[in-house]
Design a protein around this nucleic acid. Sequence first.
DNA 1: ATGATATTGATAATCGTTATCAAAATATTG
DNA 2: CAATATTTTGATAACGATTATCAATATCAT
Lengths: 155, 155
Amino acid sequence: MKNKVEKEWEKEFDYFNKRITPCRRAIMEIFEEEERHLSAEEVYMLLRERGEKVGIATVYRNLDLLSQMGLLHRVNFGDGREHYEMTRVSPPQHHHHLVCTRCGKVIDYSELVREEHEFLDRLERELSSKYDFLIQSHQIYFYGLCESCRSNFES
Amino acid sequence: MKNKVEKEWEKEFDYFNKRITPCRRAIMEIFEEEERHLSAEEVYMLLRERGEKVGIATVYRNLDLLSQMGLLHRVNFGDGREHYEMTRVSPPQHHHHLVCTRCGKVIDYSELVREEHEFLDRLERELSSKYDFLIQSHQIYFYGLCESCRSNFES
DNA sequence: ATGATATTGATAATCGTTATCAAAATATTG
DNA sequence: CAATATTTTGATAACGATTATCAATATCAT
């Protein structure tokens, strides 16, 4: 195994004994460029636009692998499919999600990042040691009803 | 609509103009008794054990409805199915989840509940007003690798 | 009661994801 | 470099959770 290491995330491939294939590199690049959560289908489309000839199964496999490696993490909005986001370490670009349980609308927010950091750092330390768990990322979801769904709730 | 209101959650049915059917009542009772997250399939089984003759489709429909009403909320551990928990208002029984991204193991935790409350209350107020969003519940997930998965990571 | 509306059950259909397995790519060894 | 072992991929079938359909049933309002 002799992956060239130019980017931070490339080290992880050595650590996990995985190869940096064109498909995997392209997926990582897509997430670096698109700063948003993407479904497997969306990643697949973006790969094709780039001219990468990959099968959808490989996309699923690699999204799964990258998640296990901690480079991506899954976010789930209850719409029946998984979404993936880059796990950004630096700069720490924390943002979380407000999810409307009725229409599925998702609002990204990044309020009170500093306070969150203080609180979650402490919590993470407690949990890591208590449960012997390597914490790689976290997600906060707020669930409720958005304005439009609140004003006209009907069967 | 004239639902008898004996329990707190029964009010919500009037508010949302929904009927309290035997199936719906039984589902709520199951979640009151079982203090854990349940999948649709598990709820279905527990209903049958009680002697409730319901179809699986109705279970899905009602879990969905109850979620939209804010009485339940979905939790998702990335294992391909939704789980549901009761949204407990009093006593506030906050607990969140540590999810191993490799083996799917879920650890419930309830550390630092007081500090969480302080921080999240403030965050909730900000988000509610800023995005005009009625927040009904929240979930914090920590993702990472549990001890056993960390010690033997192999393809 | 009567008619309108809501809920349910059985089951087919949908759709995101996973499994299979042979072919291709890449690494390792001699 | 050639030969072999290992990993990754692609096409597609299979799977499984969830949703849609629609007629039957239950419940509500008048």
